[in-house]
Simulated assay, not measured.
Amino acid sequence: MNIKFEEREELKEKIKDVNNLGFGQYFTDYMFLMNYDEDTGWHDARIVPYDNISLPPSAMCLHYGQTIFEGLKAYRNGDKVFLFRPDENFKRMNRSNDRLCIPPIDEEFMVEALKKLIDLERDWIPDSKEASLYIRPFVIAIDPKLGVHPSGSYLLMIILSPSGPYYKDGLAPIKIYVEDKYVRTVKGGLGTAKAGGNYAASLKSQVEAEEKGFSQVLWIDGVNRKYIEEVGSMNIFFVTEDEIMTPELSGSILPGITRKSIIELLKSEGKKVVERRISIEEILTLHKEGKLLEIFGTGTAAVISPVGELFYEGTEIIVNNGEIGEISNYLYNELTDIQWGRKKGPEGWQVEV
């Protein structure tokens, strides 16, 4: 499939202060679009000036939530630009598509289309050790019909946003509230898909947690109300003297690409990594016995996010005196060195644009 290109009449002024970029506030000159309809399939791939889009009020995405998205980054190291395992993002995108009855995309084509878009916008990638270009591919249902059934037409888009360092003052532990009232998803629901509805379901908890002084919410399962699942924007790991544990992908947890990469890195170095059901009571016991050494989250935005405190039903769990643990710090440096091309990673992890 050819990709058409529509040039802007005038380019935007680039953002110079990378320390005040924030996240998702500024957008580049161009975006990628591609349409789907039942007769033609995916077609009309194009790179066009970033602009508003027009949808009828009856567009199905606005009523029934048939939307999915992905998130990844482009990293600059001098004159070189790298993507980190983009094939994994488009594989996961297709798993989300399948769950929401959206037609599959050609994963190899999407990687090449993304590389073309990034190459065009490479001047937007911040030239800073910790800043990057955030990439948001997404699909929305656009049939102008009311009725609860899959759409027959879709719009796929990729937009780009230069983003500053996640930690402005350096890597720092966060405080997490363990949710004991609301439920985000259950096995058989949308938890394994990167769907907009998952994040809508998390907003109430996130707002209440922030009001209490916590930056993130840790979800426990919606059936037994005791097994740990994931943080709102991250998967989670627990470090003891004997092993590094993370909740198994039980059907209600998003299979994070950073999670997968961290597990592969740890195993390649001979560390014992266990994926299984982990109850919040087990974590409380490990902490009480002095066996809980570290907690950290993994995700695209923060890469590694050390956890200094968990709060559950009135109990504070202070981890490693609220300081960054040795493994968390090592993994952050190791993975970011690979992502920015400062160090060679496993085969296929670094994709140069």
Rank of each mutant, 00 (worst) to 15 (best):
F27E: 01
G196E: 03
E281Q: 12
E112N: 15
L114C: 03
R92Y: 03
I338D: 02
W124E: 07
I228M: 10
S250M: 12
F69Q: 05
S328A: 13
D79M: 10
F69I: 08
S202T: 12
D123I: 06
Y166V: 04
I125N: 04
R95C: 11
K260F: 13
D221Y: 07
G270N: 08
E70M: 06
P255E: 14
G232N: 08
L146I: 15
G341W: 08
G308S: 04
A301I: 07
L292I: 02
R276Y: 10
K288E: 14
E309T: 11
F238D: 00
A74E: 00
C61I: 01
R99D: 00
K4I: 00
R8Y: 02
G41F: 13
T258L: 02
I220Q: 01
T240I: 10
E294D: 10
F311I: 03
T240E: 07
E275Q: 15
G152H: 14
V239R: 03
F32S: 02
Y134E: 01
H287V: 05
K16Q: 14
A59Q: 02
Q66N: 09
K194P: 01
L21V: 06
Y312M: 09
R342G: 13
K260M: 14
L72C: 11
S205P: 04
K272E: 14
V207L: 15
Y182G: 04
P86F: 10
I3M: 14
E289F: 06
S151F: 02
T298A: 15
R46K: 15
K12V: 00
E309P: 04
I53F: 12
E112F: 07
T67R: 05
P247I: 06
S161H: 03
C61R: 03
I135L: 07
E38R: 14
N97M: 03
S205T: 11
G290E: 08
I118R: 00
